[in-house]
């Protein structure tokens, strides 16, 4: 190999490297060249803080500046009609209580909660096939998705999220809702399986009413969200793993007409606990904070 050939190879290699670096910096928007939310010092400071508090970061942090806006949603009550039609048909025995409507058929029952949460319980369960215990996670996921598609429950925007294993046989496949590439963590399907048999499906589906672009703001960096979470939770007794830090939307289930939901950083700990940090305020999201009753006067 002569010097000319070596130069050519190096030119190609550096061209490739520069393309890669350019892609990292400029895509998807060109503002990223100068608009980095997390510096190297901040990242190493975060890792040090996590280590001191017995946490370990096992995922990468998105260091770019992100913008987001509130999303106005309502409970999607229209999906209920489709679910009843597909799973029960026309005839159903119906019981009403104050907060729940109970639809009964011979092989299943459907509970409709006032908040819009729908729970389908299969009396005998629905078997997803033979020898499912031999299937790995992705194969099992495909089986569950197939089951949802067969029952016309595979809604547009349904996105696989995770599997929660309760014991050797029982596991829950969790799907959530996606809008324009961003997950809405509260819109979900929880498919409960026991030894390859679907026992129940809980569905809480949201209807995006509108985006509010005039309130688009820069969100806090993921490092700040992690700082706030550790401040809220305190030091871990045992080493805790931070598996995933993801930006999306989150809301509690409200019995309301419609409501705005904020962008959140969802932080997954030890592959089972999810915490939602408001990506505008940095607060740990919790129930709305209106008290039903104030303490009696002079209560001690």
């Amino acid at each position: 190999m002569n010097l000319g050939q070596a130069k050519s190879i190096l030119i190609i290699a550096f061209l490739g490297l520069n393309l890669f670096l350019g892609y990292q910096l400029f895509w998807p928007d060109f503002g990223r060249l100068t608009d980095v939310a997390v510096t190297a010092e901040e990242l190493s400071g975060l890792e040090k803080m996590l280590d001191e508090n017995n946490y370990v970061l096992e995922t990468s942090i998105d260091r770019g500046v992100k913008k987001s806006e509130f999303l106005k949603v309502s409970a999607n009550r229209e999906v209920k009609e489709g679910i009843i039609k597909n799973l029960i048909g026309q005839v159903a025995e119906v019981d009403y209580t104050d907060e729940i409507i109970h639809y009964r058929a011979s092989d299943l029952s459907i509970l409709e909660h006032q908040s819009g949460l729908i729970q389908v319980d299969f009396n005998e369960g629905v078997c997803l096939g033979e020898n499912t215990e031999d299937l790995d996670k992705s194969e099992m996921q495909a089986k569950v998705e197939e089951f949802l598609a067969e029952n016309e429950l595979k809604f547009e925007g349904l996105r696989f999220d995770s599997v929660e294993k309760e014991n050797e046989d029982q596991e829950t496949f969790l799907f959530n809702q996606e809008l324009d590439g961003k997950p809405i963590f509260s819109g979900h399907f929880r498919v409960k399986l026991d030894g390859g048999t679907v026992n129940s499906v809980a569905i809480y589906w949201l209807k995006p009413v509108e985006r509010i672009p005039e309130r688009e703001m820069e969100v806090i960096p993921a490092t700040d969200a992690l700082h706030n979470l550790v401040n809220n939770l305190g030091p871990g007794v045992e080493k805790r793993k931070i598996n995933k830090v993801e930006l999306g939307y989150y809301t509690e289930e409200y019995e309301a007409e419609k409501w705005e939901i904020p962008p959140v950083w969802r932080i997954t700990l030890d592959e089972k606990e999810h915490y939602y940090i408001n990506a505008f305020t940095g607060n740990l999201e919790q129930e709305p904070v209106i008290l039903e009753e104030l303490p009696a006067n002079g209560e001690s």
């Binding site: 007409e257 409501w259 705005e260 939901i261 740990l284 709305p288 904070v289």
Partner: peptide, 18 residues
């Protein structure tokens, strides 16, 4: 953020206070 209730009331919260 705003939560519109069925009775015409509005709840405003920043996740901390309401």
């Amino acid at each position: 953020r705003t939560i519109e209730e069925g009775d015409g009331s509005f709840i405003y919260t920043d996740g901390g206070k309401g």
